[in-house]
Amino acid sequence: MATTDATATTDLNLRNLPDPRGEILNVIPAEAVVTVAECATSWCKVTYDGTEGWAYSPYLTASLDNQEPVVLYDNVDRFEVKQVDVNEDDRGRAAAVGGLTGGALAMSVLGGPAAVAGGLAAGAILGGGSVPEKTVTYVVSNPSPPVYVEGEVVVGAGIPQEVELVQVPDSDFRYVYLNGNPVLVDQDRQIVRVIR
Score class of each variant (00 low, 15 high):
128 G>S: 15
47 T>Y: 02
94 A>K: 00
175 Y>L: 04
81 V>Y: 07
6 A>V: 09
73 Y>G: 03
191 I>W: 01
88 E>S: 09
192 V>C: 02
109 V>D: 03
3 T>K: 06
114 A>V: 08
25 L>A: 06
63 S>V: 00
112 G>L: 01
49 D>A: 15
87 N>W: 03
23 E>R: 11
13 N>T: 11
121 A>I: 00
35 T>P: 01
125 I>D: 02
158 G>C: 04
86 V>G: 05
91 R>V: 06
126 L>R: 14
14 L>S: 00
70 V>Q: 12
130 S>Y: 11
164 E>H: 02
195 I>L: 15
161 Q>E: 13
51 T>I: 14
102 G>P: 04
118 G>R: 12
129 G>M: 09
153 V>E: 06
2 A>C: 00
10 T>F: 09
135 T>Y: 01
51 T>L: 07
119 G>F: 02
183 V>K: 03
12 L>Y: 06
43 W>R: 07
61 T>P: 00
96 A>Q: 13
32 A>V: 00
103 G>Y: 12
80 E>P: 00
43 W>D: 11
85 D>R: 11
172 D>S: 14
90 D>K: 04
16 N>C: 11
192 V>G: 03
113 P>M: 09
132 P>C: 03
30 A>V: 01
180 G>I: 01
55 A>Q: 03
170 D>S: 14
17 L>D: 04
57 S>A: 15
41 T>G: 09
13 N>R: 07
78 R>G: 07
31 E>H: 12
150 E>F: 07
118 G>A: 15
196 R>H: 12
82 K>D: 14
88 E>Y: 05
25 L>H: 07
166 V>A: 05
41 T>N: 13
153 V>L: 08
61 T>I: 10
189 R>K: 14
27 V>F: 08
165 L>I: 05
161 Q>C: 00
101 T>F: 06
184 L>K: 09
126 L>F: 01
164 E>D: 09
100 L>H: 15
26 N>A: 15
42 S>W: 06
133 E>F: 08
161 Q>P: 00
133 E>V: 14
148 Y>L: 07
62 A>N: 04
88 E>W: 08
81 V>N: 04
101 T>A: 13
70 V>M: 12
176 V>H: 01
101 T>R: 11
